[in-house]
């Protein structure tokens, strides 16, 4: 496979973009519609529900999780900035922190879920818990996907830095855009499910 796809790393003059950047934004656009449909379902179910008892959720835990996820977003962008400054060591540090934060997020979520199950709260209990588990579950799958991608870029994929530093930096930017989107979804999920 020696053919070269144009504008894989360099910018196309008239659009000012490289391919993957447009690609990831289109992917995120479709994700917006995916979560949009779920939020739409959320609004409808909520308006219709006779009781909407979100007091059973653990707000302190979710607040910590919000902070954890925001922090991971910042470390993610710092890892990209480090590459821009040609500092691979710092990149590895920040990327490691990002992965650490996302794992912490999942652990906290695990405790939240298991305490719900212990008290006999299941998705089938009522529509509030149904939408709660579905939305946070889907979000968790996104976090998990992000961890896989970031881990690849942290250890096995990092050798690309030696050969194609430009392209590797682009990859981090792309992974970052995805990760910030995951953060963004949580920023809306948190008040919608826990606080309001």
């Amino acid at each position: 496979m020696d053919i070269k796809i144009p504008f894989n790393e360099e910018l196309r003059p008239d659009t000012g973009l490289y391919n993957a950047k447009l690609g990831v934004w289109l992917f995120l656009a479709s994700e917006v519609m995916l979560f949009g449909a779920l939020f739409s379902a959320y609004v409808l179910l909520r308006v219709a529900a006779p009781i909407w008892d979100n007091s059973i959720l653990n707000i302190p835990m979710a607040t910590i999780n919000t902070v954890v996820l925001i922090t991971s977003s910042v470390t993610m962008i710092m890892s990209w900035v480090s590459l821009k400054m040609k500092n691979l060591e710092k990149y590895k540090l920040y990327m490691g922190l990002t992965i650490l934060c996302s794992v912490v997020f999942l652990i906290i979520k695990y405790f939240e879920y298991s305490s719900k199950f212990e008290h006999g709260y299941y998705p089938s209990t009522n529509t509030f818990l149904a939408i709660y588990f579905t939305m946070t579950g889907l979000h968790m799958l996104h976090v998990l996907g992000g961890i896989v991608v970031n881990f690849y870029l942290w250890i096995p994929g990092v050798k690309m830095w030696e050969t194609e530093p430009e392209r590797f930096t682009n990859r981090i930017e792309i992974a970052g855009l995805y990760w910030h989107f995951v953060d963004l979804v949580w920023i809306f999920l948190f008040p919608a499910l826990y606080l309001l």
Partner: peptide, 26 residues
Amino acid sequence: FMHLNNEKPMINWSLILTVIFFIVLL
């Protein structure tokens, strides 16, 4: 973080389109 304040028109227009349909969905 996602640098949308300084993004290229192609991406901005795609996202504006998305937001319009997102609002329709909501």
